[in-house]
Nucleic acid binder design. Structure first.
Lengths: 217, 217
DNA sequence: TTAATAGTGTCTGTTAGACACTATTGT
DNA sequence: ACAATAGTGTCTAACAGACACTATTAA
């Protein structure tokens, strides 16, 4: 009996660690975030960020990759850990510490059929529904980190397809940082920070002078 | 019996989460790190960074504060999380994910009597003994973060007592970044970044013109 | 008075940021 | 030709970084 109680104690109080992911994508010139609808208790039917418990045989990063792949079918995203959340009461099931990642999807990525269905959907950052657990806090900090990274210019190309114009790159920068930038100055700056390679190719089917396509190396 | 096995399974495979701390202090103009000697298996007798499992009722930060206080008797250090370590085999006891913090101690802090004894000792960064687990990796990344922070100037005053001279501050900067800096330029820079307040007081018992003592606000 | 370190200003080359016109394509 | 966007250089004000002398204290 004592053993059973001890077992129950372990069952109830086992500490678990989860990877949660804030998945960003620019859709229709708006920064969006993926939120899923919970299918099981607790908070059944409510929305939260995608995530999952870390398994015995995987690192936090591997768990994040697994969750990301499950929700989107895409591999090889930009994926980076940005913080941990360890409040004692953040999960009603018991003690769950969360390692939080943010991911960036290329605009126009072809995703699983169930993304854009109600249960797995991108929401513009300004129209996020109520999220359960402490996921509003997680999202807030993810967004801060994203903007910091965008300032350096580090992550901009990850929002864009393999070939992109400098103008597209600038628009991503402006969207993330809520700012307007001079075209010539922007190009001087990124010329220092990146090794962008001109592919020689051009846009086509545009009703104006086509821009040169660049790629990131 | 099946229950017992299941219990054993839980015991063996329970995932635990620990807070490990890299405690920096400048001693005799050298950047030093605290390493403790393990008193229990595994790796009994070997050295590692101080750390401890996170308890049911505390956050990662609270666990870090607890460990830090246990080792040094000091509270209210600078303490910041800088990364997580989740390799599957990083701890032979089982699955332990570690949340890593770095702490900064004021030069000349009065510490527990057992610091400087063999079992709990500061080591110059260049003369660290072999550390078990993956603690060399943890230390390496902590040091990188420390240097990043020092570049901004954010953390310099935490290495110094409450009242300090600008020259001391500069020496901390140079020590952390392996660099020599012009005195006048350094003072111009920190004048922008910090609100340092002159206390009006001066050094005493120095065989030269005494410097003004500043404090950090 | 000497030894030792504190404290302070200027000059220059580089950089960030404002700013406007010509080039190339589709229709 | 016209509509629409691509692409490109200069000027200026601010800043970072090199540099050397006078001031103040203890002995």
């Amino acid at each position: 009996m004592a053993l059973l109680l001890y077992f129950m104690y372990f069952l109830l109080y086992t500490m678990q660690t989860a990877s949660d992911i804030v998945i960003f994508q620019i859709i229709n010139n708006e920064l969006c975030v993926l939120a899923v609808q919970r299918a099981t208790p607790p908070f059944e039917g409510w929305r939260c960020l995608p995530g999952g418990m870390i398994k015995e045989d995987e690192t936090a990063l591997q768990a994040a990759i697994r969750v990301l792949h499950k929700e989107t079918w895409i591999r090889n995203h930009y994926l980076e850990e940005f913080g941990t959340f360890s409040d004692v009461k953040r999960d009603p099931r018991g003690r769950v510490i969360s390692l939080a990642f943010f991911a960036i999807l290329t605009s126009g990525s072809v995703l699983t059929p169930w993304v854009t269905q109600k249960s797995v959907m991108f929401f513009p950052l300004k129209q996020i529904p109520k999220l359960v657990f402490d996921h509003h806090e997680v999202l807030k900090i993810a967004y801060q980190k994203l903007r910091e990274k965008a300032l350096n210019g580090d992550i901009l190309p990850y929002f864009l397809p393999k070939y992109f114009t400098l103008w597209q790159l600038q628009k991503v920068y402006e969207l993330l940082l809520w700012t307007k930038t001079d075209k010539r100055n922007f190009r001087k700056e990124i010329g220092k920070k990146y090794a962008l390679k001109s592919t020689g190719k051009k846009e086509f089917n545009v009703p104006h002078r086509p821009a040169i396509l660049y790629k990131f190396s």
